[in-house]
Amino acid sequence: SNREKAKQAFKELLRDKAVPSNASWEQAMKMVVTDPRYSALPKLSEKKQAFNAYKAQRE
């Protein structure tokens, strides 16, 4: 689905920018907000969900 693709793109973005798994949401956003993939997930709640999944995978 498109939403799954968007989630993957967002997680790839976090990986590409080397966002550490112990980063806070605010720290992570400063690192990725300028990338076009930041807008892949329109809802903030979805971004946070993908971010938390990313962190869980990295730990």
Rank of each mutant, 00 (worst) to 15 (best):
N22F: 00
D16K: 01
F51E: 03
K48C: 00
F10S: 08
A6W: 00
L44W: 03
K30F: 01
Q49S: 10
A6Y: 03
A53F: 00
K5A: 10
N2G: 09
E59W: 03
K7I: 12
A50R: 00
Q57E: 15
Q8Y: 04
Y38R: 04
R3D: 14
P42H: 04
T34V: 05
D35Q: 00
D35F: 00
Q8K: 11
M29F: 07
A28W: 01
W25N: 14
Y38V: 06
K5S: 12
S39G: 12
N52W: 05
A18N: 12
K30G: 09
F10D: 09
Q8S: 06
S24W: 00
E59R: 10
A53Y: 03
A40T: 07
A18S: 12
K11Q: 15
R58Q: 15
A53T: 11
Q8E: 13
D16N: 00
F10N: 14
R58V: 14
K17R: 11
A56Q: 14
S39F: 08
R3H: 08
V33D: 13
Y38K: 09
W25L: 09
R15D: 09
Q8W: 02
S21I: 13
S45V: 04
N2E: 12
V32Q: 05
A50P: 06
P20F: 00
R37Q: 04
Q27T: 14
N52F: 00
K17T: 05
A50D: 07
R3W: 08
E26H: 09
K43W: 06
L13T: 04
A23Y: 08
S45C: 04
R37M: 01
D35S: 01
R58A: 15
M29L: 09
Q8M: 05
A50N: 02
E59F: 03
A50F: 04
N22K: 03
L44Y: 01
R15E: 14
S24G: 06
E26M: 07
A56R: 11
A6C: 00
Q57P: 08
T34C: 10
K55D: 08
V33P: 06
K17M: 13
D16P: 00
W25C: 11
K48D: 02
E59D: 09
P36Q: 08
A23P: 03
K7F: 15
K17V: 03
T34A: 14
L14P: 08
V19M: 07
A40V: 12
V32H: 12
T34M: 12
F10R: 07
S45D: 11
S39D: 12
K47W: 01
A56T: 11
N22P: 01
E4H: 12
E4A: 00
S24A: 09
A9M: 11
V33E: 15
A40K: 08
P20G: 05
V32T: 12
Q8R: 09
D16H: 00
S45Q: 10
D35E: 06
K17H: 09
S24R: 01
K30P: 10
A18L: 11
L13W: 00
V32S: 07
N2R: 07
M29I: 09
Q27D: 09
E12W: 00
S21C: 13
P36W: 01
S45P: 06
A56W: 08
W25T: 10
S39V: 07
A9W: 01
N52T: 09
S21W: 12
P36A: 10
Q57A: 14
P20M: 03
D35H: 01
A40Q: 05
R3S: 14
Y38C: 06
S1V: 15
Y38E: 05
A9E: 13
D16W: 02
K43E: 14
A9R: 06
V19S: 03
K43T: 15
A23G: 04
E12A: 09
Q57F: 03
T34W: 03
E4D: 13
S39K: 09
E12S: 08
F51L: 04
Q49H: 05
R3Y: 03
L14N: 06
K17N: 12
L13A: 07
L14I: 00
K7D: 13
S45W: 05
K30C: 05
E46H: 01
N52A: 12
F10L: 05
K47V: 01
K43S: 15
R58H: 13
S24C: 06
K17P: 03
Q27R: 07
E12D: 10
M31N: 06
M29G: 09
K43M: 11
Y38I: 03
K43N: 11
A9H: 04
S21R: 12
V33I: 13
R58P: 13
V33Q: 14
A18F: 03
F10M: 05
K17F: 10
S24L: 02
W25A: 09
S45K: 11
Q49Y: 03
E46F: 00
M29H: 07
K47R: 11
R58D: 08
N52Q: 14
A9Y: 05
M31D: 08
Q8I: 12
E26I: 03
K5P: 05
Y54E: 06
K5E: 12
K47I: 00
S39C: 11
Q57D: 15
E46P: 01
D16A: 04
Q27I: 07
L14R: 01
S1A: 13
P20C: 02
F10H: 11
K55R: 10
N52R: 12
K5Q: 12
K17D: 01
V32W: 01
L14W: 00
L44E: 15
K55Q: 09
A28P: 04
L13P: 04
K48A: 04
V32F: 02
Q49V: 09
A6K: 09
E4W: 02
S24Y: 01
R3F: 08
F51W: 02
R3C: 14
A6R: 06
K7V: 15
K47A: 04
R3G: 12
A18K: 12
K47E: 04
R58T: 11
A9L: 12
F10W: 00
E4G: 06
K7T: 14
Y38P: 05
W25D: 11
R15G: 09
N2C: 03
K5D: 13
A56P: 04
V19C: 02
R58M: 15
T34P: 03
A9P: 03
S21H: 13
A6P: 06
M31W: 00
R15N: 14
L44G: 06
M29R: 12
D16E: 15
A28E: 05
